[in-house]
Design a protein around this nucleic acid. Structure first.
Lengths: 141, 141
DNA sequence: CTGTGTGCAAACTCTTTGCATAAGT
DNA sequence: ACTTATGCAAAGAGTTTGCACACAG
């Protein structure tokens, strides 16, 4: 059954949620629509909540937090922590480097493949590398 | 004049502070002593405050925060942000990679020189690289 | 003396949680 | 029906701040 209360709902967000085993509630579809809309994005809970409000999708801030956490735990999003007291969520969930603009605190993806490692450290016995976070901090010359 | 209220005070912390242009107050010397004591360390404000208390150096938590910030701004420490809502301070202030143990949330220096870049991204016009933060996330196999 | 640092407690920001209601399967 | 999600408001953690007092130069 179509949900006429979500004017911009598209098939993809429902499929995206189903694939992850998450119930396609109105709120989750609305947030997924926003997340999937604009290519690779880096946003905070606060930002996404604002966007949802603008899109007339009534979603409480608590639900935005819960939803972002849910999406992250099933691998749809990735958390980025660069500044104290602010978590960014990246719609691109693979292991890739970021630019951090120190002047205004914004984040952007570094060009794909622009960071390559000549060597990585030996890993302690019994451990494995889950990910390698790389943040290139940029400032004005 | 010697300060007999700081049993473990050493010359080095005073010199360390003077070099950075910071007034060598009792509290700052006490904290600097703790920071300089054990090689390369990774600690939070809360941790350092606890150590100060144990060392009978009465320093308020607010002063620990202020002092860590002051030390960081003059380049004596480096901030590491990996988890939301927790800032670690690294007594090694050069640009170097870290291990992050996801299981218990601890941080360690990766062996010196163990991470080398084969390539770094082109930097946008007018910007320069301030630092490259590398965090190798480890988990149990 | 004069300005900077300290301590306390209150304020603040971001995030999480408890519980009643609503919605999905 | 049964389970899971949502919303609200309140709690929580970590950090910052305002202001009076204390100390270093």
């Amino acid at each position: 059954m179509m949900d006429i209360s979500s004017p911009v709902a598209c098939e993809c967000s429902a499929a995206w949620l189903a694939r992850a085993g998450l119930r396609p509630t109105r709120q989750r579809r609305a947030l997924a629509d926003l997340l999937l809309a604009g290519g690779d994005r880096h946003l905070t809970a606060e930002t996404l909540h604002g966007e949802a409000k603008q899109a007339d999708a009534d979603v409480s801030l608590a639900t935005v937090y819960n939803t972002l956490k849910a999406f992250t735990s099933v691998g749809l999003l990735r958390e980025i922590v660069i500044e104290p007291g602010r978590v960014y969520y990246d719609t691109r969930s693979d292991d890739h480097p970021h630019f951090y603009y120190e002047d205004d605190g914004t984040i952007a993806d570094a060009p794909a493949g622009s960071v390559a490692f000549a060597s990585l450290p030996d890993v302690p016995e019994g451990m494995e590398i889950a990910a390698v976070d790389v943040v290139v901090r940029l400032r004005h010359k």
